[in-house]
Amino acid sequence: MTVAKDQVFDAVSSALVDALGVDEDEVVGSATLLGDLEAESIDLLDILFRLERSLGVKIAASDLAEHVQGGISEEEFGTPEGVVSDVGLAQLARVMPQIDVEKLRGSLPAEDVMGLFTVDNLVSLVEARVGAAAAA
């Protein structure tokens, strides 16, 4: 099964509108899930369940952080002071191309990373999962 990016975006948008009670025009690619759309952890459970129903892919809440951290260990991803390391920033640039790495270098608290996760980032993750499921 091939699902076009537009279809994935529509499914994500629909899940966000239904789970968060936000207006459709608030769900733009650059909107952050936790900040702009004010999603909480229980919302993520709801959103991911709706995506499973509409697209047939199972994504766990912890998969979002796994995707963002890219398999890099916590020690390598952040400094002992809790700031994202250069290795971590290089990973973030891959999965969150919208961020300004140079602006964030040496100053991004690791616990703020998921706050940068946008609708577009979720669409990319879901798209990859749908593609992997189709290839399997």
Partner: peptide, 22 residues
């Protein structure tokens, strides 16, 4: 209890991080 789990993870500053289960 779900709220408590989330509160603990927030106190750690991680939320539900990689490989973590509720």
């Amino acid at each position: 209890r779900f709220a408590a789990k989330e509160a603990v993870l927030k106190a750690f500053g991680t939320g539900i991080g990689p490989r973590m289960r509720w």
